[in-house]
Design a protein around this nucleic acid. Structure first.
Length: 411
RNA sequence: GGAGGGGUGCCGGAGUGGCCAAUCGGAGCAGACUGUAAAUCUGCCGCCCUAAGGGCUACGCAGGUUCGAAUCCUGCCCCCUCCA
């Protein structure tokens, strides 16, 4: 994991300026950081989407920086709010989760979370610690502090309301619960994406109402996903997961559109600002963006896996994608050739592709073959039947490879 | 409590008795072009069958009418809007 070197003052400066969208209240936070007091930095975990991707990483890196300055991360597992489904930035109601799903998701999430954030400087808390004791009276007291108009001020609520689309009552509850979390753990700072601004602000208000000092709000920019349009999110499928294999992280990074390169550098790496400026000039000067993108891809894999894996991922990319050579290792599939033969004795490639899992169905496999997407040992096939020897390499599309081994011979 | 509208493939959204495995758009996949970029163009985009061709499922659920239903009828479930 990367560490920014320098004096505490320099680190604070970096923390407050690099990859930051908005801080409320900035002056106050700066003062608190300089005071030397150990701050409690709150971060919410939404256990409905267990996989962490680069979009989350922007905030996770910030947490890491806070930790390096000696502060305490308090990670809240939203086991209650997950049952509601956070409506932030969405226009549709989300399905509720069962307690069991939440627990399982949280486990996966934490394992990934601690690849970036220091576990020893993190306090993990479950909402059920406090909401489990809530009774109706508490709920009434909590809800009575705010008005519908206040909540309708929130962008997505306002939009849905005016468009006549449904807003579940529980969704209005969401910001309240999240706000109460801040009270429960006495947060000094809450950290997250800009789409959370409303919820964060409710937290501030509620803390003040309940006699606490209102938390400072630290918002990081939202990372645009691999589609180049919408924010990175799992449900949109435009994400790069931090737990994906190095080659995939590298490869997916290479396929982002050029316009995103600098954003990614700024939000996801510690490449110094001066160097980024230089990159921008290079791009303006007509340099091939691919080279910068390779640097970016390397940086990302290095952060998540280390130098050695970054180098290997790059080699893999150059070899397989750029030079169109075979990868070093190809997934092997052992299967009975005889079970896949036509009466004439040749192999039915459609059934083989399905059996190996490359295609979801025989029909799909047939389509792939008809479209010229399938190569056997470097030769494109155009018919379903094929003479195949054990150990053949099959390539489907641009980057799917399998090696088929005839299991008939081995028994 | 009253009135009205609606549930279609991954999503949006046409279709109101046969020409519907279902127009179109998006997503996705593949091919061409490339820098595995983007954009663009082309094709595919339910499942199964030895590709032509055929079969089987499918339009909220369950029945029914009909030679024939996503389309008509009955019941049920669910959703939305407006009035109170």
């Amino acid at each position: 994991m990367s560490t920014v070197s320098g004096s505490p003052a320099q680190k604070i400066n970096y923390l407050l300026n690099r990859a930051v969208a908005e801080v409320i209240d900035r002056r106050e936070l700066e003062r608190m950081l300089l005071s030397g007091r150990k701050l409690r930095i709150k971060e919410g975990l939404d256990p409905s989407a267990p996989d962490i991707h680069l979009g989350h990483m922007v905030a996770l890196r910030k947490m890491r920086q806070f930790q390096e300055l000696g502060h305490q991360i308090v990670l809240i597992v939203g086991d209650w709010t997950a049952q509601i489904g956070d409506p932030s930035g969405r226009s549709a109601t989300r399905p509720m989760l069962t307690a069991e799903q939440v627990r399982k998701n949280a486990e996966t999430y934490l394992a990934q979370f601690f690849r970036i954030v220091d576990k020893d400087k993190t306090e993990v808390r479950f909402q059920s610690e406090w909401f489990g004791k809530f009774d109706l009276g508490d709920v009434v007291r909590l809800t009575s502090k705010f008005t519908v108009a206040q909540f309708l001020a929130r962008d997505d609520f306002a939009k849905r309301f005016s468009e006549g689309r449904p807003i579940a009552i529980t969704e209005l509850l969401y910001p309240l619960l999240q706000a109460y979390d801040s009270v429960a753990i006495q947060a000094d700072v809450e950290l997250g994406g800009t789409d959370q601004k409303f919820n964060f602000l409710v937290g501030r208000e509620l803390q003040e109402m309940m006699g606490q000092k209102p938390q400072q709000i630290f918002m990081v920019p939202l990372l645009v996903g691999t589609d180049g349009v919408q924010k990175m999110s799992k449900s949109l499928g435009n994400y790069i997961g931090i737990a994906e294999p190095p080659e995939d992280i590298y490869g997916k990074t290479m396929s982002i559109r050029d316009e995103l390169i600098m954003d990614y550098f700024e939000l996801l790496t510690d490449v110094p600002d001066e160097e980024l400026e230089e990159f921008r000039n290079q791009l303006k000067g007509g340099a091939n963006p691919m080279n910068l993108k390779k640097r970016l891809a390397r940086e990302l894999v290095r952060q998540l896996y280390g130098e050695e894996d970054a180098r290997r991922a790059e080699e893999h990319f150059e070899k397989v994608i750029q030079k169109k050579e075979l990868p070093d290792s190809v997934r092997e599939c052992h299967l009975s050739f005889n079970a896949l033969r036509f009466p004439g004795g040749e192999i039915d490639m459609r059934r083989l592709l399905r059996a190996t899992g490359v295609a979801a169905s025989t029909s799909e496999a047939g389509r792939l073959i008809n479209q010229g997407a399938v190569e056997v040992d470097g030769k494109r096939i155009t018919t379903f039947q094929c003479q195949l020897s054990s150990g053949s390499i099959i390539k489907v599309g641009k980057h799917r490879f399998i090696k088929v081994i005839n299991a008939d011979n081995q028994t």
